[in-house]
């Protein structure tokens, strides 16, 4: 018994040590970014790397926010990312529910056609998409950006949510039908609340996707006042010399909202709401 206990404890500590090591390795670049953001001038990498700056300063953050378009870009990104997250969540959940529960002609074909679209690489689509956007007058417009991000996010998120809806018990819907609810009420009042963990995953990931997206935004937004955060950060880089302190301060500013979002939505990620909802 004692031997068993001891070996179990040994195992426990070894696992803990390995996990800590893994976490430190994974965190190091992030910590270096934080450290560099507070360094006064960081054009060439120092040797040895310092994780605690000698003369910490907020100067980089000041420079970033005093620059021409950084705060506008922050606002633009928030606007675009929130709109995209709302649209993707709403539309993909409706699509997913239809694919999970309804029968209609061509359903399988349509479903796989939508999924097949995910296999086309984004870079290949950039020029045709740009020409289309230009004809629809969606260049230099946030509406255009949100439309493209939403369209791009629907396939995967619909696939994710369909799986979730399929895992929910039919009996709940049958019970609601007996009580006189129509399909919309069932979807809106019963299925959506149950799908909250999956919906928050979809919401957070579509938010992050739109918040981080770079190439398309760079291509279609040529009005500096309309540009989003990733472009503003890249514009702090120079052709020959880059002050990494400034770039990392700007990146850190961009990371903070996403971390907050995760912390806030984490409780929804917890599964198991349907446990015991139906008596078998």
């Amino acid at each position: 018994m004692t031997v068993n206990n001891r070996s179990q404890r040994m195992f426990h500590w070894t696992i803990l040590a390995l996990l800590t090591l893994g976490a430190v390795i994974a965190m190091a670049p992030m910590l270096y970014m934080v450290a560099t953001a507070f360094k006064p001038a960081a054009y060439v990498p120092e040797f040895p790397p310092k994780f605690i700056p000698d003369n910490p300063t907020l100067e980089n953050f000041r420079t970033a926010f005093n620059s021409r378009n950084f705060d506008t870009a922050l606002f633009n990104s928030a606007k675009v990312a929130v709109s995209t997250a709302l649209l993707v969540t709403t539309l993909s959940s409706m699509m997913a529910y239809a694919f999970a529960r309804f029968e209609f002609p061509g359903k399988t074909l349509l479903f796989y056609t939508i999924l097949a679209m995910m296999m086309v690489p984004t870079m290949m689509l950039i020029i045709p998409q740009f020409i289309l956007a230009s004809k629809l007058e969606l260049i230099n417009s946030h509406t255009g950006l949100v439309l493209v991000y939403t369209a791009g996010g629907l396939a995967f998120n619909m696939f994710l949510l369909r799986g979730f809806f399929e895992s929910l018990p039919y009996e709940l819907e049958e019970a609601a039908l007996i009580d006189g609810a129509n399909q919309f009420v069932i979807f809106w009042r019963i299925m959506l609340p149950l799908a909250r963990p999956a919906l928050s995953t979809v919401g957070v990931f579509s938010f992050l996707g739109a918040w981080d997206e770079y190439i398309w935004a760079l291509t279609v937004l040529t009005d500096p006042a309309k540009r989003t955060l990733p472009i503003a950060i890249q514009n702090f880089r120079g052709t020959r010399a880059t002050d990494w302190g400034l770039v990392f301060a700007a990146s850190l500013t961009a990371v903070v909202p996403t971390v907050l979002l995760f912390v806030f939505f984490q409780r929804y990620f917890v599964q198991g709401i349907t446990t015991g909802a139906v008596k078998k």
Binding site: I126, I127, F130, S134, I215, L218, T219, Q234, N235, T239
Partner: peptide
């Protein structure tokens, strides 16, 4: 202003769309 790394590609795409 544009980032140097993607400038060439961005111009080419914009020109293809007449922008």
């Amino acid at each position: 202003p544009f980032p140097y790394g993607e400038f060439r590609q961005t111009i080419l795409t914009a020109l293809a769309g007449g922008e």
